[in-house]
Simulated assay, not measured.
Amino acid sequence: MTSTRATPLERLADVLADDMAQVNALIRARMMSENAPRIPEVTAHLIEAGGKRIRPMMTLAAARMCGYEGDAHIKLAATVEFIHTATLLHDDVVDESAKRRGRPTANLLWDNKSSVLVGDYLFARAFQLMVEPGNLRALSILSNAAAVIAEGEVLQLTAAQNLATTEATYMQVIRGKTAALFSAATQVGPVIAGSPEAQVQALYDYGDALGICFQIVDDYLDYGGAGDGLGKNLGDDFRERKLTLPVIRAIAAADATERTFWERTIGRGQQQDGDLDHAMTLLTRHGALASTRDTARHWAAQARKSVAALPDHPLRDMLADLADFVVARVN
Rank of each mutant, 00 (worst) to 15 (best):
M32V: 05
L26I: 07
V148P: 00
C66A: 14
Q187N: 01
E258M: 01
A253K: 14
D19T: 01
D237A: 10
M318W: 12
Q128S: 14
F325L: 00
A78H: 04
R5S: 13
D92W: 06
D273K: 06
A296S: 14
L142G: 01
G207T: 11
S195P: 03
L109H: 02
L230S: 11
A29C: 12
Q128Y: 09
C213D: 06
L319W: 07
I266T: 03
G51H: 10
L136A: 15
F261W: 03
S306M: 08
D236I: 07
T2F: 07
G67Q: 06
L234E: 09
K99M: 13
H84P: 07
S97W: 06
R28C: 13
Q156M: 08
R329A: 12
H298A: 14
F238S: 03
K99V: 12
G134A: 06
V200P: 02
I27F: 10
M58C: 05
L181W: 04
R64P: 09
L89P: 03
I149K: 04
L129K: 07
N35A: 13
T105A: 09
L289C: 12
G235Q: 10
A77D: 07
R259M: 13
I192F: 04
D324L: 00
S3M: 14
K232D: 08
R100L: 09
L60E: 06
A98H: 10
L12C: 01
S143E: 05
A62W: 02
H73T: 04
I174L: 04
T295P: 00
A180F: 05
A61P: 01
M1I: 08
A300H: 11
Q271T: 03
N135E: 15
E34R: 14
D91V: 05
V173G: 11
P190A: 08
A63W: 00
D294G: 07
T43H: 02
M318R: 14
N107W: 01
A185K: 00
G207V: 09
T292G: 10
A180V: 00
R137Q: 14
M20S: 02
Q272P: 03
P8V: 11
